[in-house]
Design a protein around this nucleic acid. Sequence first.
DNA 1: ACCTGAACACCGTTCAAGT
DNA 2: ACCTGAACACCGTTCAAGT
Lengths: 177, 177
Amino acid sequence: MAVLAGRGADAVTIRGIAARVGVAPNAVYTYFPDKAAVVRGLAEHLLGRVDHDRFTDPSQPRRELVRALALELRTKLPAHPGSVHLMLGHPPDGPHTWAVRETLLAVLADAGLGPGDAADASHLIDVHILGSVAVEAAAGPEGSAVAAARFRWGLEQLLDGLAAYAVPAGVERPAPR
Amino acid sequence: MAVLAGRGADAVTIRGIAARVGVAPNAVYTYFPDKAAVVRGLAEHLLGRVDHDRFTDPSQPRRELVRALALELRTKLPAHPGSVHLMLGHPPDGPHTWAVRETLLAVLADAGLGPGDAADASHLIDVHILGSVAVEAAAGPEGSAVAAARFRWGLEQLLDGLAAYAVPAGVERPAPR
DNA sequence: ACCTGAACACCGTTCAAGT
DNA sequence: ACCTGAACACCGTTCAAGT
């Protein structure tokens, strides 16, 4: 985390981390089997910083909750530009990743989406977040404000599309397959 | 291109390309200033293979055209899984890239989107394509069919959202700002 | 269990030199 | 203009050895 924050994603390297800890490069292999595991652990730790419980407040409109969670992920995920490039190669799958995914799925299901639709919708939002950040990182740091605005614009279009699937609470809907 | 197709994205390397051509590694620097330029050229060449003129047929519904172009890009772009990982770091900006972008913008404008909305919508579709392929590549080759299906599903939600912005042809719309 | 030194097989890039 | 040999400053990873 210190290396990522201080010297950028390119410096996140086995040797760089080892140097930061003051240890020989191969000493890292005592704790991680390979670099992929290190990066996965890093992404997991980043997702652990997301306070996802905040987005289950049932007094808020569902659309508001989904929007807020998506925005939180989009802003917290890339601590440093280029960190996405790292975790794009090695997707996280630890408990924190799972917890965030569960929260999003729960809100979507609560909004009236069936299990299959909720899974597809969750994946769609994932893709939008990762794609947006990746394109922003690729374009360089100059168009960061534009990218954020376009993310929000796109998110609204996407939520509009999903709204058709959202059956209001209390209304009959088909049984889950 | 031969290296990418034959030995994967990881083998797309200055030294690998040089070896394939039968030349010393540094000879590549006669033609390209650095590796980023090589990858950009590669992405440009890939986009040149997209027959984007096919998607301007005015007899087809606009939504059909946008959908078809998006699907064409999604299938042609990653010749090999992981090629996205390459061009995500070095976004292409050559004439072919421009031509494809122009075609998409034209169809969107033709569908009744104002210039600003068309630009945002084009970017949204870009993000969805790149995000989808990137997530697929990250997940590994096993879930490729699922990823493609989810791309199409998400694309429909996205088109539903955009449909609200599409003023039918012949109808008055606000003057471009 | 945890660390080291040394090595292996790679990278991108540069430099000086040749034709 | 186009290529070479040699080198520099890096990588991830492994191996044998130490405590």
